[in-house]
């Protein structure tokens, strides 16, 4: 009984940690995606709207 409880705890912990890593990974991808759109995509409308911020933030702009 004690062994089972201990095993469950370890498994739960490992599973929680995996979920945590997956969450962090998806958030990271989302963050990079936002930076790519606001800072790097060269579509004219986006470029013009974000122009001053791109220069001020040091992104390659033109």
């Amino acid at each position: 009984m004690k062994t089972t409880a201990a095993t469950m705890t370890v498994e739960d912990h490992a599973s929680a940690s995996r979920t945590g890593l997956a969450s962090a990974f998806f958030a990271l991808i989302l963050g990079v995606g936002i930076i790519a759109v606001t800072g790097h995509v060269q579509a004219a409308a986006l470029h013009d709207a974000a122009h001053d911020m791109r220069h001020a933030t040091g992104f390659p702009c033109h």
């Binding site: 962090a24 990974f25 958030a27 963050g31 990079v32 936002i34 930076i35 606001t38 800072g39 911020m53």
Partner: peptide, 16 residues
Amino acid sequence: FTMLTYCGYAMILVAL
């Protein structure tokens, strides 16, 4: 766009 950009950076920073 500055707010959006730093939301993107925040997403990365908080994930880490």
